[in-house]
Measured scan of single mutants.
Amino acid sequence: HMTFVALYDYVASGETDLSFKKGERLQIVNNTEGDWALAHSLTTGRTGYIPSNYVAPSD
């Protein structure tokens, strides 16, 4: 899985969403939902949907 870094803070709007903080590292599990991606946080160990425009690929 590619690793991504959060560009902004995001507060989950539902139970299936994943909250994260700017700078948090995430792995995209499934990116077939258009503007949303299923992601796993390497920081918190949690998995949920995130807005895909809130993250960018990290080196």
Rank of each mutant, 00 (worst) to 15 (best):
residue 1 H to N: 13
residue 1 H to G: 14
residue 1 H to A: 12
residue 1 H to W: 13
residue 1 H to C: 15
residue 1 H to D: 12
residue 2 M to D: 11
residue 2 M to A: 11
residue 2 M to E: 11
residue 2 M to C: 15
residue 2 M to F: 11
residue 2 M to V: 12
residue 3 T to A: 07
residue 3 T to N: 08
residue 3 T to E: 14
residue 3 T to H: 11
residue 3 T to Y: 14
residue 4 F to C: 11
residue 4 F to Q: 05
residue 4 F to A: 06
residue 4 F to P: 01
residue 4 F to Y: 14
residue 4 F to W: 13
residue 4 F to K: 04
residue 4 F to H: 08
residue 5 V to M: 06
residue 5 V to N: 03
residue 5 V to L: 08
residue 6 A to S: 05
residue 6 A to I: 03
residue 6 A to P: 03
residue 6 A to D: 01
residue 6 A to W: 01
residue 6 A to F: 02
residue 7 L to G: 04
residue 7 L to Y: 04
residue 7 L to Q: 07
residue 7 L to C: 11
residue 7 L to D: 05
residue 7 L to K: 06
residue 7 L to A: 06
residue 7 L to F: 04
residue 7 L to H: 05
residue 8 Y to I: 07
residue 8 Y to V: 08
residue 8 Y to L: 08
residue 9 D to G: 03
residue 9 D to H: 02
residue 9 D to V: 02
residue 9 D to N: 05
residue 9 D to S: 05
residue 9 D to R: 00
residue 9 D to Q: 02
residue 10 Y to W: 07
residue 10 Y to K: 01
residue 10 Y to Q: 01
residue 10 Y to R: 03
residue 10 Y to I: 02
residue 10 Y to F: 07
residue 10 Y to P: 00
residue 10 Y to N: 02
residue 11 V to M: 09
residue 11 V to P: 04
residue 11 V to N: 10
residue 11 V to L: 08
residue 11 V to S: 09
residue 11 V to R: 06
residue 11 V to I: 12
residue 11 V to G: 05
residue 12 A to V: 04
residue 12 A to S: 09
residue 12 A to G: 12
residue 12 A to I: 03
residue 12 A to K: 04
residue 13 S to N: 10
residue 13 S to C: 14
residue 13 S to T: 14
residue 13 S to V: 15
residue 13 S to E: 12
residue 13 S to Y: 10
residue 13 S to G: 09
residue 13 S to P: 09
residue 13 S to H: 11
residue 14 G to Y: 09
residue 14 G to C: 15
residue 14 G to V: 09
residue 14 G to K: 14
residue 14 G to S: 13
residue 14 G to N: 13
residue 14 G to W: 07
residue 14 G to I: 07
residue 14 G to E: 08
residue 14 G to F: 09
residue 14 G to H: 10
residue 15 E to R: 08
residue 15 E to N: 10
residue 15 E to S: 12
residue 15 E to K: 11
residue 15 E to H: 09
residue 15 E to V: 10
residue 15 E to Y: 08
residue 16 T to G: 13
residue 16 T to M: 14
residue 16 T to I: 08
residue 16 T to Q: 14
residue 17 D to G: 14
residue 17 D to M: 13
residue 17 D to S: 08
residue 17 D to W: 09
residue 17 D to C: 15
residue 18 L to W: 03
residue 18 L to G: 03
residue 18 L to K: 03
residue 18 L to F: 09
residue 18 L to P: 06
residue 18 L to N: 03
residue 18 L to V: 07
residue 19 S to M: 07
residue 19 S to E: 05
residue 19 S to C: 05
residue 19 S to T: 09
residue 19 S to Y: 04
residue 19 S to A: 06
residue 20 F to A: 03
residue 20 F to L: 06
residue 20 F to N: 00
residue 20 F to G: 01
residue 21 K to Y: 07
residue 21 K to H: 09
residue 21 K to T: 09
residue 21 K to N: 08
residue 21 K to L: 09
residue 21 K to C: 11
residue 22 K to W: 02
residue 22 K to R: 09
residue 22 K to V: 07
residue 22 K to T: 06
residue 22 K to A: 11
residue 23 G to L: 03
residue 23 G to Q: 01
residue 23 G to D: 04
residue 23 G to F: 03
residue 23 G to S: 02
residue 23 G to K: 01
residue 24 E to F: 01
residue 24 E to D: 11
residue 24 E to R: 00
residue 24 E to I: 01
residue 24 E to K: 00
residue 24 E to V: 00
residue 24 E to M: 01
residue 24 E to S: 01
residue 25 R to M: 14
residue 25 R to G: 03
residue 25 R to L: 15
residue 25 R to Y: 14
residue 25 R to Q: 10
residue 26 L to G: 00
residue 26 L to W: 01
residue 26 L to Q: 00
residue 26 L to N: 00
residue 27 Q to M: 14
residue 27 Q to Y: 14
residue 27 Q to S: 08
residue 27 Q to A: 09
residue 27 Q to T: 11
residue 27 Q to I: 15
residue 27 Q to N: 07
residue 28 I to R: 02
residue 28 I to V: 08
residue 28 I to C: 06
residue 28 I to F: 07
residue 28 I to H: 01
residue 28 I to P: 01
residue 29 V to Q: 08
residue 29 V to S: 07
residue 29 V to D: 06
residue 29 V to K: 08
residue 29 V to A: 08
residue 29 V to T: 07
residue 30 N to D: 13
residue 30 N to M: 14
residue 30 N to G: 15
residue 30 N to P: 07
residue 30 N to S: 14
residue 30 N to Q: 12
residue 31 N to P: 13
residue 31 N to A: 12
residue 31 N to Q: 13
residue 31 N to L: 14
residue 31 N to E: 11
residue 31 N to T: 12
residue 31 N to R: 13
residue 31 N to K: 13
residue 31 N to D: 11
residue 31 N to C: 15
residue 31 N to V: 13
residue 32 T to D: 10
residue 32 T to P: 12
residue 32 T to K: 09
residue 33 E to A: 11
residue 33 E to I: 12
residue 33 E to Q: 11
residue 34 G to P: 07
residue 34 G to V: 06
residue 34 G to S: 08
residue 34 G to N: 07
residue 34 G to L: 07
residue 34 G to R: 07
residue 34 G to Y: 06
residue 35 D to V: 09
residue 35 D to S: 09
residue 35 D to M: 10
residue 35 D to F: 11
residue 35 D to R: 10
residue 36 W to A: 03
residue 36 W to E: 03
residue 36 W to F: 09
residue 36 W to T: 05
residue 36 W to H: 05
residue 36 W to S: 04
residue 36 W to Q: 05
residue 36 W to D: 02
residue 37 A to Y: 15
residue 37 A to S: 11
residue 37 A to V: 15
residue 37 A to P: 08
residue 38 L to E: 04
residue 38 L to Q: 03
residue 38 L to G: 00
residue 38 L to A: 02
residue 38 L to P: 01
residue 38 L to S: 02
residue 38 L to F: 11
residue 38 L to W: 13
residue 39 A to N: 00
residue 39 A to Q: 00
residue 39 A to R: 00
residue 39 A to D: 00
residue 39 A to T: 02
residue 39 A to G: 04
residue 39 A to I: 05
residue 40 H to C: 14
residue 40 H to M: 14
residue 40 H to N: 06
residue 40 H to I: 15
residue 40 H to F: 11
residue 40 H to D: 01
residue 40 H to W: 06
residue 40 H to P: 00
residue 40 H to Q: 11
residue 40 H to R: 14
residue 40 H to Y: 13
residue 41 S to Q: 04
residue 41 S to H: 07
residue 41 S to F: 02
residue 41 S to C: 02
residue 41 S to W: 01
residue 41 S to V: 01
residue 42 L to M: 08
residue 42 L to S: 04
residue 42 L to F: 06
residue 42 L to I: 09
residue 42 L to Y: 06
residue 42 L to E: 06
residue 42 L to K: 05
residue 42 L to H: 06
residue 43 T to S: 10
residue 43 T to E: 13
residue 43 T to L: 09
residue 43 T to G: 05
residue 44 T to G: 02
residue 44 T to C: 03
residue 44 T to N: 04
residue 44 T to F: 01
residue 44 T to A: 02
residue 44 T to E: 03
residue 44 T to P: 01
residue 45 G to C: 08
residue 45 G to W: 02
residue 45 G to V: 01
residue 45 G to R: 04
residue 45 G to Q: 05
residue 45 G to P: 01
residue 45 G to E: 03
residue 45 G to S: 04
residue 45 G to N: 07
residue 46 R to C: 10
residue 46 R to I: 06
residue 46 R to E: 08
residue 46 R to D: 06
residue 46 R to K: 13
residue 46 R to W: 06
residue 46 R to V: 06
residue 46 R to T: 05
residue 46 R to N: 09
residue 47 T to H: 07
residue 47 T to S: 11
residue 47 T to F: 09
residue 47 T to L: 06
residue 47 T to M: 10
residue 48 G to R: 01
residue 48 G to N: 01
residue 48 G to H: 02
residue 49 Y to M: 10
residue 49 Y to D: 02
residue 49 Y to W: 15
residue 49 Y to S: 03
residue 49 Y to N: 05
residue 49 Y to Q: 05
residue 49 Y to V: 06
residue 50 I to F: 02
residue 50 I to D: 00
residue 50 I to P: 00
residue 50 I to V: 10
residue 51 P to N: 05
residue 51 P to F: 02
residue 51 P to S: 02
residue 51 P to D: 04
residue 51 P to Q: 03
residue 51 P to L: 04
residue 51 P to T: 01
residue 51 P to I: 02
residue 51 P to H: 03
residue 51 P to Y: 03
residue 51 P to K: 04
residue 51 P to W: 03
residue 52 S to M: 15
residue 52 S to N: 10
residue 52 S to A: 12
residue 52 S to D: 04
residue 52 S to H: 09
residue 52 S to G: 07
residue 52 S to W: 15
residue 53 N to M: 10
residue 54 Y to Q: 06
residue 54 Y to T: 06
residue 54 Y to I: 08
residue 54 Y to E: 02
residue 54 Y to G: 06
residue 54 Y to C: 11
residue 54 Y to H: 08
residue 54 Y to P: 03
residue 54 Y to F: 12
residue 55 V to C: 06
residue 55 V to Q: 04
residue 55 V to E: 04
residue 55 V to P: 04
residue 55 V to A: 07
residue 55 V to T: 05
residue 55 V to Y: 09
residue 56 A to V: 14
residue 56 A to P: 11
residue 56 A to D: 06
residue 56 A to Q: 11
residue 56 A to T: 14
residue 57 P to R: 09
residue 57 P to Q: 10
residue 57 P to A: 11
residue 57 P to C: 10
residue 57 P to K: 10
residue 58 S to Q: 13
residue 58 S to N: 10
residue 58 S to W: 14
residue 58 S to F: 14
residue 58 S to H: 12
residue 58 S to C: 15
residue 58 S to L: 15
residue 58 S to P: 10
residue 59 D to C: 14
residue 59 D to W: 13
residue 59 D to Y: 12
residue 59 D to N: 11
